[in-house]
Every structure is written in C-alpha cells, then in structure tokens.
Design a protein around this nucleic acid. Structure first.
Lengths: 338, 338
DNA sequence: CTGTTAGCGCCTTCAC
DNA sequence: GTGAAGGCGCTAACAG
C-alpha cells in the first residue's frame, strides 16, 4: 500500500524493488542498458504498486512530454468536433497524447484573454506544442510551436491550415446562379478570420462575374453560430422581397436559417434554397434530402495541423507555412431552380 | 527578452525586478505580506516579460493545481459535448480550469486501457480530481477524487451522477403504448452501463404492464452510436412484420434509425414512429417536427458531477454518493397513433 | 549494468 | 517585508 499521503512515487518503486530510482527511471523510459531480469523485476513491482509516473515531474525535468495541446473556443459545434477528431487521429498515429482546453462557449467575451493564458499555460509546461482553432489573438507568448486551424489574414506569426475558402464559396455561388437565382442572401461568418473574409469574397466575386450587383440589404453579419444564423435568417426571410436563395458562411449558420424558415412555414427547397459551408456530418441528415454545402475536410485540417506541429516539435522544417486544404462542392437536396 | 532556450521562469522575473524568487512567488500567490510597491513592481515586470508560471512545476510542489480533468470515450456525439458544457459551466463558476482527454472514438478497442492510464496520468499530476464519463473500468488507481457520469450497476468505488433511466424509459414507452403501438422495436445501448441496463428495464417493464409479451426479434443490441443505430434500424425496419414504432436507447441511435428509414423511403411519423432518449440539442431540429425523446438534462449532469468533485477536492462530505437527475418526457413530432 | 549527483521551476519554512 | 535553503518526482550526466 502506498503512503496514504499522495500517490506512489518512483522512490516507492525503487525501494520495493531494491534498486535505485535511476534504474526505475531507465525501465520507465525503456532504456536498453538494463539487465533483463532487473527490468522484469521492476516492471513487476510497478504494476503491483499501480505506479504511474507524474506527468508534472516528468515534463519539468525533460522538456519533452509527448503531449500536444488543442485549444479551441467552443466544442458545441461539429466543426470543432471534427477538428478534434482529426487531431485525435493524428496524435494516435504519431504516438502522442492529447490534452485540450476549450472555452465551452465561443461567445463568451472572456475567451480571447483566456486563449492567450491557456496557450502559455499549456505550452512550456505540460505540452510540447499546441494546435489552436480559430484564434483570436495574433501572437502568443511562447517559445514552443503553435499551429493554427484557420487564421487571421496576413498573419505570419505561426503556421496555419486553411482551406481554399474563396474558391469554395465561388463554386457554390456559381451553382446557385446557374440554377437561376439572382437574389441571393448571405449570412456572414467571423470577420476577423480568413474563412469569414474569403468566403464573403467568393460571394461578392461570383455575383460580379454574373453581373449581379451586390445588394447590402441581402448581406447579414454573422459569427458562425446557429443562434446568430437563426436571427439573420429571420431577417432575410422577412424582407419585403424575399431572397430565393441563402448562402450561409458555414453549416451551423445554415441550420439556424433553416430553423427560421421552418418556423415561418417555408419549405426547403420549394420556397427557398439554402446552402452552407463545411460539410459537417449532420448536413447529410438534416433535411430529408440533406444540405447542399462545400466540403473542406475539416477532419483533414485537424490532421494536417497536427502533422505540421509534430514536425515543428521534432525540429524539422515545414515545406510551407500555410497549408491549403482543397474544397469541393457537395450537392444535396436543399436547392432547386427558380 | 527571455532566454532563447525555454520560457521565462520565476528567476528571470526576480532578476528583472531586483528581488528574490520567493518574493515573486509571494506576489504570484497573492500573499498579503508583501509591500504594496514591491507588489506593483513585480506585477509590472511579470506582464512585461509575459511570464506565466509553469503548471508542471507548480503542481509538483503544491499538490494543488486548480485544474480538474474530464475524461470521456468520445467527443463526436452531442451527449459528450453536452456533458462537457455542463462541466465547463461549473468550473468557470468555481474558479477552476479544465483539461480534458478523450479517446476520440468510442469504438476503439484500446479505450478501456487508455481510460485507466489517463485517469492516473492526470490525477496526481496536473489535476486535483477528474470527472469521467461512461467509464469502462470499475476502479481507478488514484488517491484523488473521481466522479462518474453514468456508471456500472452496483459500483460503489466512486460517486456518480445518473438519471432516472428506468422511469424515463417507462414514460416514453407508456406514451407509445397509449398511442396504440404494440409492436415496438428496441435499439439498445451499452449494456455495461447503468443507462443501457435501466432503459432496457423500462422497455420491458412497460410492455409487461400493458400485457404485451417481449419479442426478442424486436430487440437489437446497440452501443449508443449512430452507426450501430443505423444498422439496427435497417434490421428492424426490414422485418417481415415491421414494428410500428421504435424506441432507441439514445438520440444518437435514433438518428441512425431515422436515416435507415429515410433510405428505405419510409416517412416519419406516418410509416413508423421513432423515439430517442437524452434530448440532445439536435433533436429539436432533426425532423421538421423534432424527435420525441426523454430529457435528462445532460448538461445538468455534467454540472452536478463537477460540483460533487469540487466538494470532494475541498475535503467536504457528499450528501449522497449517487446523484439522481430526473427525466422528463418531451413530446415532439416523430410519433403518431396507429 | 547500476548507483550517485545535480538540478528542472516552484513554493514553503525559517531566519533576518 | 524579504531572502536563503530545502525539496516536490523525475531524468541526465557521470562514475564506478
């Protein structure tokens, strides 16, 4: 039985096995210069005592924890969850462990400050590097690697993974225009992020290509959340001259718009066409026919970011500091020709 | 500028401020025996240098990190996400920080082993206690507090939060029976957990109350995931004599069943009534009329578990070791009378 | 092969 | 009010 005080330490193991702490440490780290029977012996004692080495102590001493961190503003949406899955897949593959922190609520005003705090709390303590999703801060007080998923335009303080946002938006807009829509509403995303800016760019560019003037009345400022999407949807659908189609900057926002439509008794796609962006899993289920959207392999983004981070941790150079993930139009049943 | 080697330490701060490390430590921990101007001075230097104390070092020394851990098998489903939100809300309220670990994939066979590993890795290192969701292990090698959300029957090794699963199942079954359904399919959950067992119990009890024999053909073994729910749904809906209603042990499974129904061209609720359990947020949106389900305030469960944990950490006694959260029938549009 | 010796960054007596 | 010294659990030289 270990001391009632705390958990069992490397000393307890050493004493019980009749060896020194350094020998135990060697066994723990699978050093090859340990006699085979000593090794077995110590292993035995370790499992008998149920010993686990303290992450805290280890990381303090060895500057290498084999743990990577994931920091994101929210976990309530599938985008975050998908990133998480990608990161998770990668860390399993590379033999790292994952620890994550989240604000739990993207809209909390305290998030930006906590974001910074957490990056420096994790990094340089228990983490060898961190992946940050949809950052607010432009820079972080850490000497350890940071890789972002989505980022601020022109920001080159740390590497990032982004998708070809403008191209994706262009593609889905062209699709709507080709269906005959000319009055297309837009529900925006976070305007500080590359994703929000470039998707809007795609919206504008597509309209101009088709000689359709950009109508400010049809453009709503959103923030990628379902709630704000809902309010923007209400607004757009209540316009005297209702848009025939609405492009929401992400699927979450689109869900909000759909809800607004349902509540107003509007049928999709009969009364209004709706498209999103991200291709999160629910899009396939949401409506009987699914939501037409733009795929950007969110999971792939998490995976790529982690790969980059691992390279950085190992001291390897990155081929490119901005990694672009391609987008692809996914046509489902939420649109129809006018 | 800090040393290029690592992050800035308490020594750097001390040197820059012209005081000793212990004085800095005092400032850090808001001890009251520091001269007001020394205090200000040090604070100043700290923010100039962008210093953050190392979680690792701190926790090693002081056995108190103010961080609580959350360990769960998956994050891909809303149940987990809701628990996470509840926990998050509680930690914010109590002034703790949160660190979480997840397998990222509930079905990975390696999870049970990693679950144990992580509990002991976090606890006793960087965490003052941990909340574990849907545990596999029956016991954990740690002397620090652990509280479970959902648990194994008869397991009294650690406190847990559960809902009145059987009562909830009973209520929703009575609702279906009252609508005239007598051929009711069942898609089960994880049979090692209280939730899976008690919900099935409710299913059986309700049938018996109504003098309907339990038909093994109508009972499918599930595991709370959408994929398995889908397969079970296919099976049940392909039965020569199709059930008129299906009760899925959780909403995720119900979504799988709904998908199966859609693919077979069956309309809900016209061709088949479907109900779930959990009342996760999507249930309100999923079908035009929403999914009828049982609410168990998942978020509330996460919150309650965290409250219990915090009490334990503070050394306070718990009023009860099993905390019951009430369930409530939520009628939406996924059912109709036969 | 294995034990001894130093710290890692921090907090806590205990002196001054 | 403040500094010096010791040690938390662990790993990395350096000796044997």
């Amino acid at each position: 039985m270990p001391r009632s005080k705390g958990s069992v330490t490397i000393h307890d193991v050493a004493r019980a096995a009749g060896v020194s702490v350094s020998t135990v440490s060697r066994v723990l780290n699978d050093k090859d210069d340990v006699a085979i029977d000593t090794y077995e012996q110590v292993k035995q004692v370790i499992s008998e005592l149920g010993y686990t080495s303290s992450l805290a102590a280890k990381s303090m001493r060895s500057r290498k924890t084999n743990v990577i961190g994931l920091v994101m503003p929210d976990v309530g949406d599938s985008f975050s969850v998908e990133v998480m899955k990608g990161v998770n897949q990668a860390i399993a593959q590379f033999g790292y462990d994952l620890i994550m922190y989240t604000g739990g609520d993207a809209s909390a005003s305290s998030w930006p400050a906590r974001e910074q705090k957490y990056i420096s709390l994790l990094n340089g303590s228990i983490t060898d590097g961190v992946v940050i999703v949809a950052p607010y801060a432009l820079t972080f007080p850490t000497t350890y690697p940071v890789v972002a998923v989505d980022h601020h335009p022109g920001d080159t303080n740390f590497p990032a993974v982004v998708s070809t946002n403008r191209e994706g938006a262009l593609a889905i807009m062209e699709y709507l225009i080709q269906l005959g829509h000319r009055r297309i509403g837009y529900v925006g995303g976070r305007s500080d992020l590359q994703s929000g800016i470039r998707r809007y760019q795609g919206y504008v560019d597509a309209l101009q290509q088709a000689d359709i003037p950009v109508n400010p009345e049809l453009v709503q400022e959103g923030n990628f959340t379902i709630d704000v999407g809902y309010r923007c949807g209400q607004h757009l659908l209540n316009l005297p001259e209702r848009p025939t189609a609405i492009f929401a900057a992400n699927d979450q926002s689109a869900f909000g718009v759909i809800r607004a439509a349902h509540e107003m008794g509007l049928k999709i796609p009969d009364d209004v066409s709706i498209v999103g962006f991200d291709n999160i899993p629910e899009t396939a289920y949401f409506l009987p026919g699914g939501l037409t959207t733009v795929d950007q392999s969110v999971r792939q983004m998490g995976l790529a970011a982690t790969e980059m981070l691992v390279k950085l941790i190992k001291g390897e150079a990155l081929a490119e500091t901005i990694y672009k993930v391609p987008t692809r139009l996914v046509v489902r049943g939420s649109c129809r020709a006018v």
